[in-house]
Design a protein around this nucleic acid. Sequence first.
DNA 1: CATAGGTGTGACCGGTCGGTAACAAGCATC
DNA 2: GATGCTTGTTACCGACCGGTCACACCTATG
Lengths: 204, 204
Amino acid sequence: MKKSTAKADAKTSPRERIVSTACALFRSHGIRGIGVDAIAQAADTNKMTLYRHFGSKDDLVCETLKVASSKAAALWDDLSTRFPGNPRAQVDGWVSARVDCLASEPYGCDLANAAVELKESDHPAHALIESFKTAQRQRLEELCREAGLSEPELLADTLSMLLEGARVSRIATGDQGPAARFERACRAAISAHAARVEEAGVGH
Amino acid sequence: MKKSTAKADAKTSPRERIVSTACALFRSHGIRGIGVDAIAQAADTNKMTLYRHFGSKDDLVCETLKVASSKAAALWDDLSTRFPGNPRAQVDGWVSARVDCLASEPYGCDLANAAVELKESDHPAHALIESFKTAQRQRLEELCREAGLSEPELLADTLSMLLEGARVSRIATGDQGPAARFERACRAAISAHAARVEEAGVGH
DNA sequence: CATAGGTGTGACCGGTCGGTAACAAGCATC
DNA sequence: GATGCTTGTTACCGACCGGTCACACCTATG
């Protein structure tokens, strides 16, 4: 009678429900802004079950960040299957994919938001966040290098900063702020690094 | 005897002490991570005095954000006095100033951090943050235009995103992450917009 | 000396937080 | 039917939160 908030009906385990619910609530209320009891109730279960699966709230936070990380990994797989053996197309596809994310996800990056929100420097989430962000940047740099773009480290860092900046700009000033020109800024940066290759006689 | 934590001795008023202490503690612990009582004690006063000057914690938050805004305004004044009538030098000076800020302030932008942390969309701080960020971007765009750089809106947004991205990257991955190449990325973007002007036969 | 305004003190309020204990209920397997 | 595992329920704990109260204090001005 009081059971389903359209979540418990499915055969999803309590654990899965807790994680996905926590993801959503951390996003909308902030990690510090929502309590474990509210998460458990929203996931159609209770606090005791939550604590049987996750030793602490911090553990649950880390789990949700791992989920967010794995979703980002799926994006890379999608790129390499859609443009196999064409790294330059993958770079362009990365921009397009990020534009789409930006439009559909106004809340910024879960990992970056957690980094801002969790000030305790020894929080286990920080290690997760750092390794994730570093890996993303590394992968982007390799892609730029494979695509024959000049100064792949600089270009990867530029694109990384543009993306990160676009996401926090969306939070602060909405989609009519600097984020509105994210795509143009990325394309311009990429073409600049492509042009320099041609000038050096390497490319095309 | 127990009075000074090296703060109350000076003739600064309790109000000033509260604001400056709150700025520091919000930065190090997060707005949600520090209580009004702890702020009052760290400012060598008490909670009652705090509430006599600020009606609520939210009011105090807004006040600290206004202080942060005014510090940013001082940076613009400094630029225009150091390079009067030379907008292009001011653009370059903006980059240098931001590089310095980035190196000395590892905690990111107070305003942006507050925007991430405060999820209640009706929080009075959000209006402050939006108007501040919009004004910063606007001023940068005007400067780029005066400097004769092409597509000043795109360049201003690019620089804004690079700055914002560099600041959150510093939080997530330290000063060896993408933020390490913030200056090079900015200079490259600026010179690209300068080059296009020359190509069009306008400049120099 | 009297007054008044800003300040300090400590207790208090209701609420929420993360986390735990004890016990009942469901459910599959043997 | 008995076993054991996962779940649900309720109450509880100590701590902290934002915010208020009543009252004492200090100091400057009249």
